[in-house]
């Protein structure tokens, strides 16, 4: 439970950076931190104390394998979400660089030509 709480507070840190900070790069970092927290949460779901990797080897019998092996599905989900996160992050950084070219600032409050 402590782990879940810590994980949740990590997510809150990301959310804080995302909402409060004005600097674009800090906002991006906030998103990245939140993403790590969510990925970590998914890993925690599959976590088992003293678990083994979910690979069934020749000299392992099925009953103990089922008891000790960790859940492999969250790991697969996390890999997918990491790939997605990579794509999002690359796009965010690229747009941030372009925004800096256009506006000459990283401050979100000065980037406000659109309103309404």
């Amino acid at each position: 439970m402590t782990l879940y709480m810590l994980n949740f507070s990590l997510m809150m840190v990301g959310m804080y950076a995302l909402i409060v900070k004005r600097h674009i790069v800090k906002k991006i970092l906030g998103i990245a931190i939140m993403e790590y927290a969510v990925n970590h949460f998914l890993i925690l779901i599959g976590f088992k104390k003293a678990g083994v990797a979910p690979i069934l080897t020749k000299d392992m019998d099925l009953a103990t394998f089922i008891q000790t092996a960790v859940d492999p599905l969250p790991q697969a989900l996390v890999l997918t979400s990491i790939v997605i996160g990579l794509g999002t992050l690359a796009l965010m950084v690229a747009i941030a660089i372009r925004l800096y070219e256009r506006y000459g600032t990283f401050d979100m409050h000065e980037i406000n030509r659109l309103r309404g």
């Binding site: 990579l86 690359a90 950084v93 690229a94 660089i97 372009r98 800096y100 070219e101």
Partner: peptide
């Protein structure tokens, strides 16, 4: 793709 992303960002950096 990762290499291409890196190159693209490096080029953008140069423009700035």
């Amino acid at each position: 793709s990762l290499y291409a992303i890196f190159l693209a960002l490096a080029i953008l950096q140069r423009v700035v």
